[in-house]
């Protein structure tokens, strides 16, 4: 197990280097001169431009620039924007918001998706199963923009008006954990649908396995056959999906953040791309990649815990 962990950790390094470089190269290759953009319509003093190009290593080859960047990041320095603001100060609290939103969505996804999926699989072919399938279809076909505004209206406005219940804040983060419930649900929508279907398929497949037949032949109660012998095996593929989905959720949080006015990293990213603040863009995406790689690492470790065949390979 120890060797497995070390190997997975080492394997994460080239992934990180590769993705950040790709990212760096892409941003670098964008048309337009970022320094010239600073002045807007005015022409900048050529001396100033030259000094800034020097300061930000813009005259060096791409690989050298990348090397400077990585060196700084490893020591915790995300650099400064062209406007002189430390990039990390722009991150202040924003990653936290996005992360909390995504984790909330992930929890909704896991609980609702796995729950519905298992239920549908156990009622395979009956009306409950059909209903769940129809529900997932509905989820897939409603865009976040629509579901976001509808839930905002229903839970935030109508519910309060009609029943006086004021439990679901639908804008900002002033209410702590509660602020994330409705946005989390909206963000999770599509993922819930996918995970529900994946869970349903996974359990149905597991139930066809020979070792389930063995468990039944051993005279075990149905509860135990399902809960002990089928559940763990059918969860294994879901872990992979959930792990990969954390990154997807964080990257896709921007629309939800905009609808619910959450000061997350998505809005910052959008602004920075618009302003050609390369350091910020690369910084944000580097952190996202880091989260992604880390989540996958955790998935791999969980996998090994759940499936001995991997642990002992």
């Amino acid at each position: 197990m120890g060797r497995y962990v070390i190997r997975r950790l080492l394997q994460a390094i080239p992934v990180l280097v590769g993705t950040t470089f790709l990212l760096f190269a892409t941003v670098y290759a964008l048309p337009g001169d970022p320094i010239a953009a600073l002045g807007g319509d005015r022409r900048l003093d050529p001396q100033l431009v030259a000094r800034m190009r020097e300061q930000f290593h813009l005259n060096d080859p791409l690989l050298v620039q990348y090397w400077y960047y990585i060196r700084d990041i490893v020591s915790g320095d995300f650099g400064t924007t062209f406007r002189g603001v430390p990039v990390s100060s722009l991150f202040q609290g924003k990653f936290q918001v996005t992360f909390q939103l995504s984790i909330t969505a992930l929890v909704f996804e896991a609980v609702i998706g796995v729950g519905l999926g298992l239920w549908a699989a156990l009622r395979r072919g009956r009306w409950q199963d059909q209903a769940v399938l129809a529900f997932t279809l509905l989820l897939v076909s409603i865009p976040t923009l629509v579901s976001g505004f509808v839930l905002q209206l229903v839970l935030g406005v109508k519910l309060k008006q009609n029943t006086g219940i004021d439990f679901f804040p639908v804008a900002g983060i002033q209410d702590g954990m509660r602020s994330y419930i409705v946005p989390g649900l909206v963000l999770a929508g599509l993922s819930i649908a996918y995970l529900t279907r994946l869970t349903r398929t996974s359990l149905m497949e597991t139930l066809r396995a020979d070792y389930i037949r063995t468990a039944v032949a051993k005279g075990l109660p149905r509860r135990r056959v399902l809960g002990r012998h089928a559940l763990r095996n059918s969860l294994i593929p879901l872990i992979t999906y959930l792990g990969a989905d954390l990154g997807t959720l964080m990257g896709g949080a921007i629309i939800t953040e905009t609808i619910f006015n959450l000061p997350g990293i998505g809005q910052q990213l959008f602004q920075s791309v618009y302003l050609r603040e390369n350091a910020v863009v690369v910084g944000i995406v580097t952190v996202l990649v880091l989260v992604y790689v880390l989540a996958n690492l955790i998935v791999d470790l969980l996998y090994a815990v759940l499936d001995p065949r991997i642990r002992y390979e």
Binding site: A209, D210, Y211, R213, T214, A215, V216, A217, K218, G219, L220, P221, H229, R232, N233, L306, D307, P308, R309
Partner: peptide
């Protein structure tokens, strides 16, 4: 249920797939 597995038991062809891998 009192009989299955206790008084009448069964073994299968492919023991690798018939045993739970986890």
């Amino acid at each position: 249920g009192q009989i299955r597995g206790r008084r009448i038991a069964m073994i299968f062809q492919d023991a690798l797939s018939a045993l739970n891998p986890v």
